[in-house]
Design a protein around this nucleic acid. Sequence first.
DNA 1: AGCTCAAATCTTGTATACTAGTCAACCATT
DNA 2: AATGGTTGACTAGTATACAAGATTTGAGCT
Lengths: 230, 230
Amino acid sequence: MKQTMVALGTLERTTSSGVVFDTLFEQITRLELLPGTKISETDVAKSFGVSRQPVREAFTRLAGLNLLLIRPQRATIVRPFSRKLIASARFVRAAIELEVVRAAAKDRDTSIDAPLKANLKQQADAVSAGDVTLFHELDYQFHQLLCASGKQTFAFAIIAENKAQVDRLCMLSLTSKEAMEALYEDHQTLLKAMFGGDAKAADDVLRVHLDRLTPTIDAIYTTHKGYFDE
Amino acid sequence: MKQTMVALGTLERTTSSGVVFDTLFEQITRLELLPGTKISETDVAKSFGVSRQPVREAFTRLAGLNLLLIRPQRATIVRPFSRKLIASARFVRAAIELEVVRAAAKDRDTSIDAPLKANLKQQADAVSAGDVTLFHELDYQFHQLLCASGKQTFAFAIIAENKAQVDRLCMLSLTSKEAMEALYEDHQTLLKAMFGGDAKAADDVLRVHLDRLTPTIDAIYTTHKGYFDE
DNA sequence: AGCTCAAATCTTGTATACTAGTCAACCATT
DNA sequence: AATGGTTGACTAGTATACAAGATTTGAGCT
């Protein structure tokens, strides 16, 4: 049986419920399954060629991540966006990441300097090429490296979990070259502040950086009200 | 069927799996089930008078909270303490709560002022009476009210989740009157700083407050190495 | 055409049974 | 006494079936 590394570094088997979970997680966060979509254990089981039980387990885990809404005797729905949940997720993510960069500014793992710089270089190339997908991937890795730099690798799991709430929302917006450039500039400035040990400056730029999503989210709410709960 | 309010304010039925989850969660966090204890779906099902399936679902949720370690074809174990996990949980909890009090110092919900003050008064009484259990309960409520004050009610769910990792550890330590007094003083100073709009002072005192656990956790590690994984 | 109501259908929650992997106990051999 | 192999018990993962609540659909009536 194929084995995979999972959280906390334990070697673990691939199970049917794990496969279902991974696939649905990706479909939801990439908006291949839109908010409000009804899905049932029976249908998903059929499409994966398994019984309801592993599907049920995957549903339980996804519900725990606030991505599915399970109700007895009624079809499960892909949880609509919740402005409250999004605000909370953004707050939590910002709080953790602000503390991470503060920690990094004071006492960082310098072995992460090179991968961070390399990532920034690749970001510049992605912006030049107008490659949104690549830029998003590098952005993800950049924030992951920030956690490693601040010696808080585990924190990224929480950040990633909360990012899932926001990332699927951002799938609804276009990312212009100007927007990518602004994010890239933020990353540069942040790294400069961190490497210079300036916790205050790092704090300031990251707040600005994370706040750039606000108009995007507001715009999405205006144009996609149907995807939001009340 | 009895109904209960759950997260996100939805009215929800009580299910067998919910009952099992709640009971095991409490047993684990109160150390009635010690780290390293082996439990099986079959045994738990028997003791609750239900089938394995709702027990399995509860296990899945508890595993998601890092309280159980499920391994295929082997007995599930109550997750031993992990110094890495504890450090991470404390970091995350501190990050969120620091941002909460910063937010509260700047723009708090003043309707929470009275309940906060009332809680502090009750804390003073609990310290005088040497009532550790009551003090812990009030401490929990105090931090919950801080989130409400900072208009970040949702954040407490994450804090509570991460606190669970640390709280079950602290069940192993005695809380002296001196320790309670120190915590109470911190709460007083924190509230003063928040009400005075002094974000910096609030930040400083909360860091000290949350750091008070460090010697406690170190002492527990020394005296209870058997409860920790490597 | 619209309304009401009963039946059918769909759904999750739970019970039970089967499969396959892990581990400890036991026994044979050296 | 130590070691290695075998076997049975124990375990989670999964399949299948039943119960009960929610929703949909269609027939009958006005």
